[in-house]
């Protein structure tokens, strides 16, 4: 079923407020083989001049998944999660974030493009990440929905 681009881009996705947890950052470091101790050991982070464990560069993507149904924004468009591929991901950084921070993430679907006669649909989402009035980072995600019935 084709995605209704106008409806997708008009969708108001509620902002998400997330408390960054030390334990999760340490687990993420373990799961990604990160052996630099500033990402898992608070004493090492402080010795390197950080106030706490830093949020690593790609973890902002994970913060947005900290909700009961993190893929609702795409499945609500009629997309089967099993057919999705991650096409592109980018981050622009403005300031560091740390364990203990409360961050607000505001996503918005900014583009829906159909390719190969509707066999592929590219959905682009942009998310701003702020701490109080400070812009911390911006994230851009392109997901590719594969409509296997279309050739």
């Amino acid at each position: 079923m084709p995605i209704d681009a106008a409806q997708a881009m008009a969708q108001e996705i509620p902002p998400l407020t997330v408390a960054v947890e030390r334990g999760r950052l340490a687990f993420f470091a373990k799961a990604t083989g990160q052996d630099d101790p500033i990402y898992s050991d608070v004493a090492a982070a402080k010795a390197a001049g950080h106030p706490d464990l830093p949020v690593p560069p790609t973890f902002f993507f994970s913060l947005e998944l900290e909700q009961s149904d993190p893929f609702a924004w795409i499945t609500s468009l009629g997309v089967d999660l099993r057919t999705i591929l991650h096409g592109e991901q980018s981050f622009t950084y403005h300031a560091m974030a740390y364990a203990g921070d409360e961050l607000v993430l505001q996503p918005r679907i900014v583009d829906v493009t159909s390719k190969k006669g509707g066999a592929l649909e590219l959905v682009t989402k942009k998310t701003t990440i702020t701490r109080g009035d400070d812009l911390i980072a911006e994230a851009r995600t392109v997901l590719i929905a594969q409509n296997k019935g279309v050739s």
Partner: peptide
Amino acid sequence: MAYLARLVTNWVPQERIRSLK
């Protein structure tokens, strides 16, 4: 992508990364 971020933070401190795509 997390591995790529490790490659970069092994080279420069994270606060120097302006963007990653």
